[in-house]
Design a protein around this nucleic acid. Structure first.
Length: 260
DNA sequence: ATGGCTTGCATAGCAAGA
C-alpha cells in the first residue's frame, strides 16, 4: 500500500497535474493539503472515475485537507480535537482497509506560524500541542497509524539548503523543532529520515527567486509512523521531479510503501 | 530582501503562504 502526502496549493489550479501524477504513480492513498476549496466545489468526480474514494474537509479560499483512497475507507473524522473555536480545516482521519491490515491515517496541514513571535506562532505551537494529544491517543490503539502532511517544520539544519536563512523562521525555530520532537518521542518514526540519511532532500521550493533552479529547498512534508506501521514500511521517497513540471505546486509528494 | 511568485476572491488589488 503506497500512501502519499501532497500539498497541492489549490485543487482548482492543480487538478490536471494531480490527475496526471495519479495516473502514472497510482498510489493507493493520497493525503492532500491546501485544497483551498469548499467541500461542494471539490472536483470529486475526477478522482472517483479513477477508482478513488474521496473524503474532504474544506473551507473557502484557504487551508483544506482531503483523502483519496483506492482502498475502502471507514470511520472518517474531520477536525483536530481540543479547541471548539478553531474553524481552520487542517485535519482529517480515516481508516484504510488494506488487503492484510487496516491503517488509521491522518492527513494534516500544520499552521505556518509566521511571523514569529506573534499570534500566528502562538496558534502554531498550540496546534502542535493539540496534535500531540491526538497522536498519543492514536498510539493507544496499538495499530498501524500514519500521520502524514505538510508539517511546516524543518526538523534539522540538514533539511534546508540554506539553514541560516531559516534560523528565525517559524518553520525552524528551536521551539518549533522541540514541539515536533515531542510528538516523535511519543513513539513515532519519521518515515523518510528512517530510510534515507543526510541532507539534500527537499519537499518544497519557493516560487520566488528561482528556488527550484537553484535547488534552494526545504523538507517540511512528513509521514510519521506508529511502531506497528513502521514495522510494515518497505520503502519511502520524494517525487522531486514534479516540481520541474508545468504549473507545479511549490510542494511535491512524499510517499511510503507499507506491507499492509 | 522592502517576500522579487502563486493562488483565490466580492475579478482588483489584497491576503496568505513559507
Amino acid at each position: 500500500m503506497r500512501i502519499a502526502t501532497f500539498n497541492i496549493n489549490g485543487i482548482k489550479a492543480r487538478h490536471q497535474s494531480l490527475c496526471d501524477w495519479l495516473d502514472e504513480a497510482t498510489p493507493e492513498v493520497v493525503l492532500l493539503q491546501e485544497i483551498k476549496s469548499l467541500d461542494e466545489n471539490f472536483p470529486r468526480e475526477l478522482f472517483e472515475e479513477r477508482g478513488y474514494r474521496v473524503e474532504t474537509h474544506g473551507q473557502k479560499s484557504f487551508n483544506g485537507v482531503a483523502i483519496l483512497s483506492r482502498l475502502p475507507l471507514e470511520d472518517v473524522a474531520r477536525g483536530l480535537p481540543g479547541d471548539e473555536s478553531d474553524d481552520q480545516a487542517r485535519w482529517i482521519e480515516a481508516t484504510v482497509i488494506g488487503d492484510r491490515t487496516a491503517v488509521r491515517v491522518a492527513g494534516l496541514y500544520l499552521p505556518n506560524g509566521n511571523p514569529a513571535p506573534g499570534p500566528k506562532y502562538d496558534y502554531k505551537l498550540a496546534w502542535m500541542e493539540r496534535m500531540k494529544a491526538r497522536a498519543a491517543e492514536l498510539l493507544e490503539l496499538e495499530e498501524p497509524v500514519v500521520l502524514g502532511g505538510d508539517y511546516n517544520v524543518i526538523p534539522q539544519d540538514e533539511d534546508a539548503a540554506k539553514p541560516e536563512a531559516w534560523k528565525d523562521d517559524a518553520l525552524a525555530l528551536p521551539e518549533t523543532r522541540a514541539a515536533f520532537r515531542r510528538i516523535l518521542h511519543l513513539g513515532y518514526t519519521e518515515a523518510f529520515r528512517a530510510r534515507v540519511q543526510g541532507g539534500g532532500h527537499y519537499s518544497f521550493w519557493d516560487y520566488q527567486g528561482n528556488a527550484w533552479g537553484r535547488n534552494n529547498g526545504i523538507r517540511i512534508d512528513h509521514l510519521l509512523l506508529s511502531p506497528e506501521a513502521a514495522d510494515l514500511m518497505t520503502g519511502a521517497g520524494i517525487e522531486t521531479a514534479l516540481r520541474g513540471r508545468e504549473k507545479p505546486s511549490d510542494h511535491v509528494p512524499v510517499w511510503i510503501d507499507l506491507d499492509a
